[in-house]
Amino acid sequence: MGLRGLAGLLALTIATIWYLSGLEDYRIFVPGLAQGAAMTVQITAAAAVLAVTAALVAALLKLYGPAPLRWLAVTYIEIFRGTSALVQLFWLYFVLPVFGITLEAYTAAVIGIGLNIGAYGAEVVRGAIVAVPRGQWEATVALNMSRAQALRRIILPQAFAAMIPPWGNLFIELLKTTALVSMITLGDLAFRAQQMNQTTMKTVQIFTLVLLIYLAMSLVITIAMRLLERRAGRGILRARAA
């Protein structure tokens, strides 16, 4: 879908949420869902920061790290990609205390989701770095740059543009994964929805609103990433196309 279409869809979604919020049947749920939405946004943002950091570190270690650190990165990536996000959350929240580490639900949520998406992100980062043409590395050798300089100044900036679209998808996945934190008792959007559903049984109203709110959040992420892609693409993407 084009940027215009997405913006139109976002406007439509927000208008619908706005309209429904005014209706008698829906009004009572708005404050609770708003609180839940705020929690969802907060977890999403914090986990996204962790995910990007973990992905960069793991990808660089897997590509260029000394053997033990490389294995560590590979183990991290395989474990977090190979098991379910929900299992990881439960493990952090219920099993870690057995080893003497007790995390608050919020901390467990951010760490679990951040590391989960970070593991997928590591492969995205690695793929984008590897996709930079070999000639670019060779040019840095011919200019006598160090490997660190080459990576920082030449390779990563080019890989960055290629990473943006897959990261857009990952951030959507991340947002959706935050719904799982309701299962470790954190008061996010999904949690509030279930809670109110049990007390009021107004299932249609509640879940319609909740779906629309998630849709609006996803659209904001997609649109933001598209704009970023457009900015970063200047110069580079044209060169690739040529």
Binding site: Q136, E138, A142, L143, Q149, P157
Partner: peptide, 27 residues
């Protein structure tokens, strides 16, 4: 030693001038 390649290998995210000052400044 300096080298010029068959496929140029200019840095696509840098202008002509930036390509020429990057290594002199950093290296």
């Amino acid at each position: 030693i300096g080298m010029v390649f068959q496929s140029f290998n200019l840095f696509p995210h840098m202008t002509a001038l930036q390509n020429c000052i990057e290594a002199p400044m950093k290296v």
